[in-house]
Every structure is written in C-alpha cells, then in structure tokens.
Design a protein around this nucleic acid. Sequence first.
RNA 1: GCCCACGUAACUCAGUAGGUAGAGUACUUCCUUGGUAAGGAAGAAGUCACCGGUUCGAAUCCGGUCGUGGGCUCCA
Length: 649
Amino acid sequence: MADISLTLPDGECKTVAKGVTVADALKALVSNKTRKKTVAVRLDGRLMDLSAVLESDASFEPISSDAPEALEILRHSAAHVMAEAVVSLFGDEVKVAIGPATADGFYYDFDRSEPFTPDDFERIEAKMKELVAAAAPFSRETMPVAAAIELFTKSGQPYKVELLKEIAEDEVSIYRQGAFVDLCRGPHLPHTGFLQAFKIVKLAGAYWRGNENNQMLQRLYGTAFFDGKALTAYLHQLEEAKKRDHRKLGKELELFSIQDQVGPGLILWQPKGALLRKILEDHWRDEHYRNDYELLFTPHIARRDMWQTSGHLDFYGENMFSPMDIDEVSYQLKPMNCPFHIAIYKTRMRSYREFPLRWCELGTVYRYEKTGALHGLMRVRGFTQDDAHIFCKPDQLEKEIYNILDLNLHILQTFGFDNYDIYLSTRPEKYVGDDEHWEQATNALKLALEKKGLKYEIDPGEGVFYGPKIDIKIKDVIGRSWQCSTIQVDFNLPERFEISYTGEDGNKHQPIMIHRALMGSLERFLGVLIEHYAGAFPVWLAPTQARILNITDAQADYVEEVYQELRRAGVRIEKDLRNEKLNYKIRDAQMQKIPYMLIIGDKEMEERQVTVRLRDGKNLPAMSLPEFAALVAKENEQGRRGVCNNPGK
RNA sequence: GCCCACGUAACUCAGUAGGUAGAGUACUUCCUUGGUAAGGAAGAAGUCACCGGUUCGAAUCCGGUCGUGGGCUCCA
C-alpha cells in the first residue's frame, strides 16, 4: 500500500500507510501520553475524528484535551449524549432540533408537549451517566441527502428533515452513539466515556431557528469539562458573578430601584446612586469641555411631525411610545436626541468656517422595549445617552473619527477598561445614501482606526441603514463583554432635514453628521460599573468616600466637627453616631463598601486626628483632617486621570 | 411579545393532606459607652402582587391581569 506524508505542527514530516485511521497514525506518531489526551486532529486545517481515514498528504495536528477546540468538541458531544438521554427517557413524544456547543457549555432544543421540570434534570443527568459509563463510540457515516431525509423521516424527526431539505451539498454526515442518531458535521469524541464532568444548568424557551414566528422549543442548557475541578470552578464563578449582580448590589447599596408602582424599565436613582451618577456626569462634561465640545439641552417630547421627518416613525415606530395629544397636536416622547440637535443647527446659516461643530448632550430618551427584554439597568425603557453629534465636511471626517476614538478610549480607560473588541460595520442590504458616500465614510472610519493603531474586525453588512459605524465592546474585570461605545456616520438625517452650510466656494453643501455615544446609556454603563467593581467603587467614584465611626458618645461633638470640616473640604462623608460597638459599625461600613472608615476615640479627639481604616482591613497611621482631605483629593485627581489607586479594592 | 419558573413584613426567606401567617436582618424604645466585621431586652410591622372563580372556609386549588427571573426574538 502506498504511503502518505503527514506534517506535524513542529514541521516534521512522517509517513504512514494510506488508508489508516487517525487513531492508528497517532499510535505511530506521538507518545502514549499525548495520544491518550488526544480527542481529535486538525487535518489541513479541518477538525476530524480519530476514526477518520487518512487518504492523502496533509498537515496533522493532534488536538489535546487541553486545547480550546477540544472543549468545544466535548460539549458538542455532551449535547448529543443529553439528547440521547432525553429521547431514551421520554421516547417518541420528543422531537430533537439542534444542539451545539456554546461559549460556556452547550444546549439542545427539544419539541415536547409537556414542559421539562428541574426534577427532570436529575433524571436526565443520571441517564447521561449511564450512557457515559457505557463508553459508546461516536461513529460517523456519510450518506446522500436523500438517504438522510429518509432515515430521519422514518425515525420521526421532522426538524432534522427540515434542516436536510435546505442543505445544498450532495452528502451529509451523521453520527451515531448508542441508540442515538444525529445529523451532524462533527467532529466528536472517540466515545462517550470522555464525558466525565457535566451538569444541566437551566431550561429556557427558544424559537425554532431563532424566528419568533416559529414553534417555541424547550432548550436545555448544560455545561461540560474534561475534569470535575474545572466544572466546580466554573460553577463557583457563576456564584461569584451572582454576587456582583448590579440588581442585588443596587438594592444592598441603595443605589437605585425599579418599582411596579412606577413601571417596568424605569429607574429611580436613590441618593447614593444619584450621587454616583452625578460624579460620572460631571466627569463626562469636563472631559468634553476639554475636548472642544459644546453642551446642549433639549426637551423630552416633540411634535409627531418632527419624528415623521426624521424617519424615526417609519423605521422605529414600533419601539416608540404612543403619541399624546396636546391642544389637538400630536406629540411624541423622544427616542433619540439627534433631531433636536439638527433643529439647533438650523437656527441660522452655517459656514464651513465654524466646522466641525461638536455638540454633546446627556439626553434622556424613551423607547418601548418588549417586557421580556427588560433587565435591571442593562435594558430599560427610559435611559440617558451620552450623546454627541458632530457636523463636519467630508474631508474632516477622518480626523473627527480619530479624535472621537481618542476621547472614547481615554474615558473607558479611566474605569480600567483597557481590553476591548472593535467592530467596523459596513453597508447593509437596505440603505440610504449613495455608494460613493458609503465608501468614503467607511474608508474614513478604517483609516482613523488604523492611524490610531487599533485592531478591529469587519462586520459585513451590519451597519445601520443610514451609515457605517464603529462599535467598541469592553471587557470587564471578570472577562464579560459589554457593548457601550458606538460611532456612526449618518447620510440620512442631513438629507431629511435639508441642512446645509456655505462652503469655501460660496455654494451650499450638505454637512456630514456623526452620532456617537461613549458610555452608551448611563444607566447601563453604571450597571456595568457596579458589576465591574463589585460595588466597591474606587475613591473618586464612591458615593460615600468616608464614614466616621465614633467609639463612644464622648466623641460626638468632635465627630460633628470632623464631619463639617471634611464635608467643606469636599470629602463625601457620613457619620455613624449610633449607640453601637465599633465592631458593629465597622461591619456595617464594610458591607456598604465604603473606602475609608475614620475611627474616632478619645485618643484621636485629643490629638485632633482620625485613624483611617481601609476596606481591606488595613489601617493607615492616624492623621490630621487636612492630611486626610489631601489624601482624598489626590485619589479624586488620580481616579479622574485613570490612575487607579483603589484602597482595599 | 413568546416559553418556563416565581411573586409571603423594608430586606432575605420558611410556611403542600385548603382552617384568615412565622424566622433572621433592618426599624423604634430601654439597658449597655464598648477600640478594628454583628452586646442584651422589649416593641411595632404583612388586605400572603392584584382581580375573579371553586369551597362552609384559600397565602395554599383554578382562571385572568400586573410584575420579577432565566432564555428566545429585538435593540436606531
């Protein structure tokens, strides 16, 4: 039999007989130890099963169970095993849909008239364990589409048949393990025995093929790892994330509330939260002032006609609140700030000489969101955008985008967000404006990103209908992604509102408009910050920076003095004069995550000092009031500059 | 909006053969004046989300409404 040549990752070429399986080749090519950890191989860039037959020369890369690809294979296989367990327990009443691996686990969608219950989870898991103990091999078969359709028609799996009917290729692959057959591209584990650590975590509804007009299926979510420790660690991390939940912390730290009486998706900022928000807003305004922006304020409602002109009613009418009649004229709650900014633009003739105009506003907008989409501060019906609109000439576009990126990243870095993914979204199928403008604008966005030395991905066709955009997704301290910043070029509104400027040639031209939001929605951004910091805000942001704790009533007058003096010095301070022991007060301040506790006993009172306890339990040496005020002032200054010196986390 | 689950004092929760409610924390008062994560005692506090039905009787069963959670869909 002829030999074929395999190129290993280290560049070494080895020959094996043509027609052997990957598993056989591994025996000849790698150590036993490596072989036992290998769950698949990448042949010329394609992931394949160990049972695959080697037919020609190829690059050959064993995928060890440590590799990220291996985890995906494991989870995909786990989905199959879960489906087998479900079918075996619930029989023909269950139709299987699809079951892929996800970022942190896997799911499988089922169609079954009875809902699954959490009790079923245990039964299914127990069944899965049996299937794992059997170490049944996953075997791959290929067959013509027609044959597969026949197979799944016979076994009564209409969803599989529907999928098959849309497959353009001649052949498809199916996988069998035990009694279960699934349409699947693979690859899979050699056998079910690899599946040692898994858990079904939740149940949810999901539309067939993600279309809300389709049948609602039951989706069982699970997760799986190669070993139990990793699974435990993952479950532990879920617990940690729960502790950071901004809804829980928002309540505990008295930052905000959402109440039935007021309505869903509407935020009430309580004193502490309002102060936090004020600090954020002040910072935002200062930074914008320094970067040559001008501040605007605009109303919350406007005549319905304006929203007709802007196109919002046509494009987003379903997501706007119903109109209200005022003196027989129809008005509409604003879903966006831009038309108001344009109205200000139109207050007089504009010349190219005053360009670029950079107008910003913390503008509160209202959007009708479906009830099921609402989520704490993250998705609400009334929120404040840190909005800005820049009016400029085409040849100023690139520089403006560059400047926006600069300010944007600077502000994000202030909060320790220096890890992000950037996406450039290009022209979608439905769009307005001419192709030339689109190309010009897309290029300007690209050039600005490149000049700034930023890595980005192109999101083809994901631009808004009125222009291309850049989106920035930040990563928080526990690695979760949040999309906040967006920079969008708009060809639509200048046209619709017929705005113009006089150019160097004395003729009228249409300006280019850039929309941008850095934090996105303040509500959402604050929600992200709460989770990012787990409620323990750095000193410059903390609504309460220090709380005075006295030891006994004897120091009450001095506490009052300290309180007044530090408050006048600009420290955000509270006093706890309650008739309680120090331990009790410390515990309370600690749970409120206050950065500094100022302890005052007779000693401090005599010396006219305070003893400073940090959130991490450490103490600073006793200091005078001016010294402490200076300490806080320095923290404020550094925090605003993004130098994060956060005592005791 | 759709699927599933849930909705008991300010908070966290207990309360299944249907007989008009309980704990801890917080709150108020009193005692205690105590140096780095909960001192003690007493008290007040709930139309058991709302509306309707079944029943002699419903927090508990049924239906509807509102809200919350996990997803799906959507997100200018």
